[in-house]
Simulated assay, not measured.
Amino acid sequence: MLLYAYNGVGKTRLSVTFRDLGRVVGADGATVRRDTLYFNAYTEDLFTWDNDLTFERKRVLELNAESRFFAGLRELEMEVKIGRLLARYTDINFYIDYDRREPPDSLNEPGAPLPPAVTFFREREENGDPRPIKASRGEENIFIWCFFLSIVELAMDPEVEAYRWVKYVYIDDPISSLDEHNAISVANHLARLLTSAGRGPSVVVSTHHVLFFNVLCNELKSRAIRYFLKNGENGSYSLLDTTSKPFLHHLAALVELHDAQETGALYTHHFNMLRRVMEQTASFFGLEDWKTCIEVADIDPDRTLYARMIDLMSHGDYSIYEPREMMEENKAHFRTVFRRFVAGHPFNPQLFP
């Protein structure tokens, strides 16, 4: 199942709620059973940087060893699996130190154990030791993603006992801080992993990234159900099924704007949405700017008014989380601009029944 949603809709909250549906908590508050392996903002928080602020020589990415996410890390030779995946995206190398300790208090007493940590490097010292480096945010995120993918591969292997508890895999926005090339690569790789597996966990992917979502849709085709996820009433969600037709962000926005101007439920932020669609349309057609998308006659006295209104409303001081309904006069102007825009460009008429 693929879910597309704007930022702020609550994708992370939804992924946590989904996880909690399959979690059983004991009397002491500890989790005794679960069924969902998930990737979201909380997963990224399992990795924290120790930047060696005192000496600034050995910066490492520490792993939260208390999490079940890292079950069987050493025994399953995860470094080999992660390295094979990581090589698809970057030339950075790494190793995991499982036996870290604090400096000893004396010659006879070893220091207290420290959490396992990842050391990144590209070059080695003259003696052959890796030269530690601080990975970029994009390299860090792609490493964590490859770490997660290697676990998903294990969860899809019925012979691996450590992850046999996984019934569902929930992936929320895995491509933050990645450029478009890597966004396409990650989506393509994920789709191939999911389609190459036999029977395995059911998978949900949610994202706000248009390109990532579209690549997944094209790669998975009929294997996936696709939804546009939006906020409903009283903290609920609503789902628009986009499985039967191609999904693009600007097309989904047009459908939403069409429905809003038909029903009269027009809010100030709809001007912002309309301008964004016009910006994308102008860019696609190589036009000078979005104002050329307003199809009105040169002699129309309201031509300048429409352009100024959209410009003003799309820079207004308002919050999309607290919708402010338009005045009736502005609603009428919005309908005029929207209908002329749609009539002047060859969008599929089936989008606007």
Rank of each mutant, 00 (worst) to 15 (best):
R74K: 12
E295H: 09
D28L: 04
R33G: 14
S314H: 07
K58P: 05
I151L: 15
T268Y: 01
P104G: 01
S176K: 09
E262G: 02
F271G: 00
F213Q: 09
I144L: 12
S150E: 13
Y318N: 06
A332L: 09
R199G: 11
E66D: 10
L216M: 12
N214Q: 13
P349Y: 10
Y227G: 04
I299T: 14
L240G: 06
Y170F: 15
G344Y: 02
F228Q: 13
F285H: 06
S236K: 06
G232I: 02
T195R: 14
L220Q: 03
H269L: 03
P246E: 10
N231M: 14
S196C: 02
P246H: 07
K230N: 09
V32A: 15
I92H: 02
R131V: 09
F147L: 14
D298P: 01
I184Y: 05
L220N: 05
L190G: 12
F341I: 03
T12E: 00
E219F: 03
A27P: 09
D259K: 05
E140S: 04
S202W: 06
V24L: 14
A252C: 03
E109W: 05
L53V: 03
E102W: 03
F47I: 02
S150F: 04
R57P: 03
L229K: 00
F352L: 05
K230V: 03
F284N: 00
P301F: 00
L239Y: 14
T31H: 05
K134P: 02
F247G: 06
A117S: 02
H333G: 04
V16N: 10
G286P: 00
I82F: 07
V277A: 01
G286H: 00
R324E: 15
T304E: 12
D45E: 15
